[in-house]
Amino acid sequence: MTWVPAQDVMVPALLAALAVTDGAFAGFRAAAGRNARIRRRAYTVTAAGRGAAVALVDLAATAAVSLADLGRRYPALLAAGARMLAVLAPFAVLVVLSLGAYLLLPTREGALVVVVGLGPFTLVRPIVVTGAVAAACLGSRDPVIWAAAVTAAVGVLTVEPLVHRRWYREPC
């Protein structure tokens, strides 16, 4: 039995997990502000699921782009993925910490976290994703790696508008 080195799996697995989790949040945002009912847990879960599903499709597209000569290119793809993670992971940690603070802190302090944390983070998210693509591309001259990085970024950034237009254009 041949073991795959952990680092060979860790980077793509972490990126995929980040993309799907981000997709779930994107689905939530796509549906937010379109259902004014007070009790809407099922609505929110469905929206997050739709976002995650669209993110999975985007991941498949990224994988398809990366498939060309995968054996020879894999180390370079891993390196590019690690550079992306170096940009995305600190941002993800900040978002998770802010979300935790929002959920756990008392009313007023939690609301403050939204204003100074979660709200601005939503605004800078496209910049962070673009930075991750730049980091991935700058360390490589391989156009396939560039294409994979750009495909992944476009996928991540289009989940929310796609889900919104498909399912949540008008209030329900």
């Binding site: 007023r108 609301a111 209030p171």
Partner: peptide, 26 residues
């Protein structure tokens, strides 16, 4: 009319994030 409803539905989302109902209840 549709615009008013859309804007107010979005406003509700803002109010929920600011926990306005809890603040009133407090």
């Amino acid at each position: 009319d549709r615009l008013f409803v859309r804007v107010h539905t979005e406003l509700q989302r803002l109010g929920e994030e600011m926990r306005m109902a809890q603040r009133f209840a407090e």
